[in-house]
């Protein structure tokens, strides 16, 4: 089909930026004013003394809250709700955590390597009890890298939409529809980056997409190991939506 006109691209941009803004869990300007709130050493040690189960529960709740905002983001992207129900679910199951990780860069302070968590800014050491030091530091490094791209809010919104509406996800039934939507979003993002004289970033985005997929794969693997090593509690401590999205079906129904 014909590529979108300038007016159509502007419409895509407006819709996605508005959708992002309306579904941000925390507005960037609010987070900016909270940067001085950092966990004290005593508070960090209290988190470090928590059990692995309690810390996993806290992080799963945090992720699940953030994902609900991503679902709202998806619903507001024009064309998403016109996809078949299977494909809406496939895209959210595969991409919602990726968008949460992308959005995390807005809640990240690269100056002191901290992220907003449970009301204050926390460094990676606060998450020690999870038993996932390697994954935690990779997530922090990813946020640091995203911050160094210095994406504007509209650029981040469009990149998030592009990550979510990925036509290469497995099990899509109407892949051509997802492809068309993704192409329009890609063109819109390119348009905004060029307009902002920021188009050198374009070449760096595919690497970020690969990092996101790798991080989500590693999260799934860590969760699988947690469920195997804590079989009695694993199914009672996680929010139902988290279980639905991330645990294997056999585990979910167990």
């Amino acid at each position: 089909s014909a590529p979108p006109s300038g007016t159509q691209l502007d419409h895509v941009i407006q819709n996605i930026v508005k959708s992002h803004r309306e579904t941000c869990q925390f507005l960037p300007e609010q987070l900016q004013t909270l940067r001085w709130k950092i966990f004290s050493q005593t508070e960090v040690e209290a988190y470090q003394r928590k059990s692995t189960e309690e810390m996993w529960q806290k992080c799963a709740h945090s992720i699940t809250d953030a994902i609900q905002y991503v679902v709202e983001f998806a619903k507001r992207i024009e064309g998403f709700m016109e996809l078949c129900q299977n494909d809406q679910i496939v895209l959210l199951k595969a991409g919602s955590l990726e968008v949460v990780l992308l959005r995390m860069c807005q809640a990240f302070n690269p100056g002191n390597n901290t992220v907003f968590f449970e009301g204050k800014y926390a460094g990676p050491e606060l998450f020690h009890a999870l038993g996932c030091e390697d994954l935690t530091s990779s997530v922090f490094e990813f946020s640091h890298g995203m911050c160094s791209l210095r994406l504007s809010e509209p650029e981040l919104a469009l990149f998030s939409a592009m990550v979510l509406i990925s036509s290469d996800r497995m099990w899509l039934q109407e892949r051509y529809k997802v492809e068309k939507l993704q192409t329009d979003i890609q063109l819109a993002l390119k348009h905004v980056l060029q307009r902002n004289r920021h188009d050198t970033v374009l070449a760096k985005l595919p690497l970020k997409v690969m990092s996101l997929r790798s991080l989500c794969g590693r999260h799934a693997e860590k969760l699988r190991i947690f469920c195997l090593t804590h079989p009695l509690v694993a199914h009672s401590i996680f929010p139902p939506l988290y279980k639905e999205l991330f645990t294997l079906e056999s585990e979910h129904s167990a």
Binding site: I89, L92, Q173, L241, E244
Partner: peptide, 24 residues
């Protein structure tokens, strides 16, 4: 293929699909 997603009821509810999967 679609069978693997038919149990995702919470996500369906969040998406506003009260009646579950229909022929997808």
């Amino acid at each position: 293929e679609s069978k693997s997603h038919q149990k995702v009821t919470l996500l369906q509810l969040l998406l506003g699909h009260q009646n579950g999967a229909k022929g997808n």
